[in-house]
Amino acid sequence: MMFTAVFMVGPFLYAVYLSFTNRKLLSPLPTRWVGFENYIDVLTSSDFWAALKNNFVFSVVTVPLQTGLALALAVLVNQKLRGSTFFRTTYFIPITFSLSAASIIWSVLLNPSGLFNTVLEIVTFGQFTPDWLNDPRYTMAAVIIVSIWASVGFQMVILLAALQGVSQDLYQAASVDGANAWEKFRHVTLPGIRHQLFFTLTVTIVLSFRLFDQVYILPPKPGGPIDATNTIMVEMIQASGNNQIGKASSIAVLFFLIVLFLTIFFRRFEPKDY
């Protein structure tokens, strides 16, 4: 309890306070109350909005893609086929990779002459081989690919456990009623796993707003190239690195408000038990 008080409640209130000051690390001048100056500074800077937009784009693409893929993988692995345990293991392996290690490996694969482009070249007959990490048009796509690779296994496992909890009787009853595979999925599987599906969706949304490791390591410079993958977290780090603690705190508070808003907003769509 003490730990929580010292390291969570305290810092949070402190962050709110700091965000109204011009605090610097190790400054000879006394800290001054500056009111909403930091917020105005942040909210009127185009960098912050660009970063927020990047976060938003990342979420809008990654969340449905990753959840959909996780569901597809879970359904595939859940079929009683020989070797499905092996495949489950395979899909889960990237979870054991730190995002930093994953980013380094993918820097090699996403090199203009890397393996990823070699495969793309074959598939698209040489039409599409972008410079993923240096061309600002494609860097966010690269970040999304790496993120999905590194964390889809997590959602898959949760959804797989949910699938295994759906009663077999329901499927048999559906078969008796003449339902085809899609109808069974739509009317038996999806309702049966709605709670876990909702859980993974909300967690993925919140996590996607914390995006940092990949955009810090993968591009040639953090948030680069030309701020194409700049995120709120990168902005916060840069402000704190520039010794603008007040500004960094106000970004932190805004970040918290966004996460809080998203959490409350999605709560309303939580599936109810009938």
């Binding site: 305290g10 962050a15 916060m236 603690i245 932190a252 970040f255 996460v259």
Partner: peptide, 18 residues
Amino acid sequence: LIIVPFEALLVPLLLMMS
């Protein structure tokens, strides 16, 4: 507190540590 992300606390934590 579960919904308070740690990322939001890091700046003041840095200051406390310093």
